[in-house]
Write a protein that binds this DNA or RNA. Structure first.
Length: 542
RNA sequence: GCGCCCGUAGCUCAAUAGGAUAGAGCAUCAGCCUUCUAAGCUGAGGGUUAGUGGUUCGAGUCCACUCGGGCGUACCA
């Protein structure tokens, strides 16, 4: 629809060259009275042409070459909007497209041949994934889906660090629990990992090795076992949500392959770093930052910045055209340094898209639950999935803009699960499947040759909405906004339910019934495709 | 103090690069099932978009300040 008008205006630009100076925009008006598409071009031109916008609008309309079999009406409204009204036939063509493309309808090849990397979750293996990680996991996976739908070849990646203090403490936590099981009197430090899973791992080691590990140190088998077991659980939790990472990137490999050394050398050669107080500093002030930052501590250990920069260099070397990093707002101070470092080395940081999601506040029985992995007072992602189901979890996290703080009321989520919007969508799908089952028994078949019969308001509205799906997917993907898909589907489902209430298939004349059956079939496909982007199932029966 | 994010209906959230009368769901109230799934539909009430100024044809959206909340602000990651 927009393309159609765009072409018309391109021709018009030959007559009115000023059109090339503005960004032409077609909007879908909120109110149907204002047509199917609307443009504010006349208002934007009024300054350049020094004329009243309504006059310009009239000039534009008179100069456009209109095919009246496509466009039924054009009008000037309000301060100078030009509103276009399309004929219903124009919209019904979409049904053929939907049915022939079926599960691929909505995909586009705009970014075909491009490679994208989506890095998400990236939690260090110190404990089970919590509800907080859930938002990251679900949104990251859905963004990856969206990018695939617009043509990208996408790698899902998980970056982790199994060195460092956190992991040492983890290993020692297991060691102490193990010694406890051997009957030793242990004072378990408060800042160690308190979770039950630590005891489980210790028990496992006891069963396997007996007391042979009494004199092992924390960094050895204790840490290794903990890491292995915890990762196993993390992958299982993600699997429960149908999330599978293709690449698990270990920070340590950067050291082993000498990437850190190389990077450090490069910074020095380019005179981007210097030594002070026994530490190595990166000259960020020269890049317009407030202050220089340490990249190697006086102890000789790098800070997170160095490996993070080295890590992103590997992504560039792996040839990605787009790199998405998704993390929580607690990281919002770290990425600018990393990007600045990359930029100083000449990398095109525009290829990196850093997405920050705000925190999830968990409410339980009307109170905020403060969560900490170390203190073990968290709610795990597994518990949440067990409680409300995979589909609800995926839908719930996807349906909100990531820049908004999110309240997750567990009590309410459980109680209201029947009224969750995801059921509304699934119900629409199941309802259509049921209709198809029933009317097939009456020997009705979808007929794609009489679609002009679909001209009631309920049908036309539905058709218009179907026409927008592809555009919506593209928009959501390019802006990394998963919630748009949810809102689109809810609107589509609402229009379908309305259609269902007022326009029957059984009992209508055969031609109409079969055209409606074609329509309903198309709606079913779009709902299913939309849900599949979100990673939510589309049941045939409920 | 400084940086990022946020403040929209009783609650949870939308509002497509500034567009026309700010929209949904939940909750509340009133209706709709002898024919395709009532997990549905129709209607009603509910708003000074936190506040004050500014920018312009036009502001929830942009700018400034104020108030309130979240996350940061390390030679932790």
């Amino acid at each position: 629809m927009k393309e159609y008008l765009q072409n018309l205006f391109n021709q018009l630009a030959l007559k009115i060259p000023e059109l090339n100076e503005i960004t032409l925009q077609f909007d879908i008006p909120k109110s149907e009275e204002h047509g199917d598409l609307s443009t504010n071009a006349a208002m934007l031109l009024s300054k350049k042409l020094k004329k009243n916008p309504r006059e310009i609008a009239k000039l534009i309309i008179d100069s456009l070459e209109i095919d009246s079999s496509v466009i039924s009406k054009i009008e000037i409204a309000g301060p100078g909007f030009i509103n276009f009204f399309f004929r219903p036939v124009f919209f019904s063509k979409i049904i053929n497209e939907i049915v022939s493309e079926n599960e691929n309808f909505g995909r586009s090849d705009k970014f075909k041949g491009k490679k994208a990397n989506v890095e998400f979750v990236s939690a260090n293996p110190t404990g089970p994934l919590t509800v907080g990680h859930g938002r990251n996991a679900v949104v990251g996976d859905t963004i990856a889906n969206l990018l695939e739908w617009i043509g990208y070849d996408v790698d899902r990646e998980y970056y982790f660090n199994n060195a460092g203090r956190q992991m040492r403490v983890l290993g020692d936590s297991v060691r102490l629990r193990y010694l406890e099981l051997l009957g030793e009197m242990i004072e378990f430090p408060e800042d160690y990992y308190q979770g039950e899973y630590i005891k489980d791992i210790a028990k496992m080691l006891l069963n396997e090795y007996g007391d042979k590990l009494r004199n092992e140190d924390a960094e050895g088998i204790f840490k290794q076992t903990a890491e292995r077991e915890i990762f196993k659980d993390i992958k299982k939790s993600l699997n429960n949500l149908n999330i599978i990472h293709k690449i698990f990137f270990n920070e340590n490999s950067l050291y082993e392959e000498g990437k850190i050394e190389q990077l450090l050398k490069k910074f020095k050669e380019k005179n981007l770093s210097y030594e002070k107080d026994g530490a190595v500093w990166l000259k960020l002030t020269e890049l317009g930052k407030e202050q220089d930052k340490v990249i190697v501590k006086s102890t000789g250990e790098p800070t997170y910045r160095l490996p993070d920069i080295a890590y992103h260099i590997t992504k560039f070397e792996r040839g990605y055209d787009l790199m998405v990093d998704l993390f929580g707002s607690d990281h919002n101070a770290t990425y600018p340094d990393v990007l600045a470092g990359l930029q100083s080395l000449g990398y095109d940081v525009n290829k990196i898209k850093v997405l920050i999601h705000q925190f999830v506040t968990i409410m339980k029985d009307g109170e905020v639950v403060k969560m900490s992995t170390r203190k073990a007072n968290y709610i795990t992602l597994d518990e949440l999935v067990d409680e409300v189901g995979k589909d609800v979890v995926r839908y719930f996290f996807n349906m909100r803009n990531i820049s908004s703080h999110m309240n997750f009321d567990l009590t309410l989520a459980k109680k209201q699960s029947d009224e969750n919007p995801v059921f509304y969508l699934q119900y629409a799908h199941a309802r259509i499947c049921s209709i198809i089952r029933t009317v097939t028994k009456e020997n009705l078949q979808p007929d794609y040759s009489n679609l002009h019969l679909l001209d009631s308001p309920e049908e036309v509205q539905l058709l218009k909405k179907l026409n927008l799906f592809k555009e919506e997917v593209l928009y959501a993907a390019e802006n990394f906004e998963t919630h748009r898909i949810c809102f689109y589907l809810e609107e589509l489902a609402a229009l379908f339910h309305k259609f269902y209430t007022f326009r029957r298939i059984l009992g209508s004349e055969r031609e109409i019934a079969e055209a409606r059956l074609a329509l309903v079939n198309a709606v079913k496909i779009v709902i299913k495709n939309g849900l599949s982007i979100l990673g939510v199932s589309a049941p045939e029966q409920m």
